[in-house]
Amino acid sequence: MLGKLIKHEFKSTAHSMFGIYLSALFTFLAMLLVFFIKNRTLMITGSLVLVGICVAAIVVTLFAIIGTFNKSLYGNQGYLSFTLPVSGKSLLASKTVVSLAWIFISFAFIIAVAAFLLFYWIAQTSESFKDIVNMVYTTLQTMMGMPDAETAVKSIAVLVALLFMKALFLIFKVSFSLTIANTKSFQKLNPVLAAILVYFAIYLVLNAANLAAAFIPVQLAIATNGIGLTVGETMIGLAENANVFLPLPILGYIFEAVVCVALYLLTGDIMTKRVNVK
């Protein structure tokens, strides 16, 4: 049933996202056309429109996630969703998977737009693409100390995993807030206001916890020649001369991962035991 829920959730959310990606496609095509006309004003305008669409993609994705969750569970459509022969946790899981997918699609879209604009403008200059990439890489290496190729791949994997967790964390905070806002205790309040209040309450509590965790000096360290841990001044799994260019608060992330699991279980439980569809 989870697969079917995901399929229909995709169909449902795609309607909100369709306009954004269609307008991006038209802008891409228009910019390619302008490229051959060599009209600089239109090229700049097109680039700015694409950047604007990137911002809109993020905003629309967030609103689509929040709107679809609220409408399809706690609005009129909840009469259908909650009478399907599936558990509350399956409903939540399907919405989480699809929301996560849309967040990653919007990130991939932004990376694609950035790459497109880079190629687009490089193609206007006399420099070769390879020369420009080398120049950028060398500059960054001088400024920050870029990692070797193997460490770069590992670092990207770590950053993608962290991004994944952050996205998941955001989805669970939103779904938990919307669910709590629809329980009996909050029914007298406006559900949107109640959801915002709950969200900020969670935000404050978690930030306080993260702040407390920051006093414990354990960090995941991405260095130029490897990834390891630092505990105070001590490095674990790294060479003595390692140049740490990206320290990450690993305890904060572990704490967030635990909270993610707790929010998922709590939301699923509250959805099936405490929420009344109005």
Binding site: G78, Y79, F82, T83, K184, T272, K273, R274, V275, N276, V277
Partner: peptide, 10 residues
Amino acid sequence: IKILVGLIND
């Protein structure tokens, strides 16, 4: 009815 179909839980 909403209790019987699982829309009211409290």
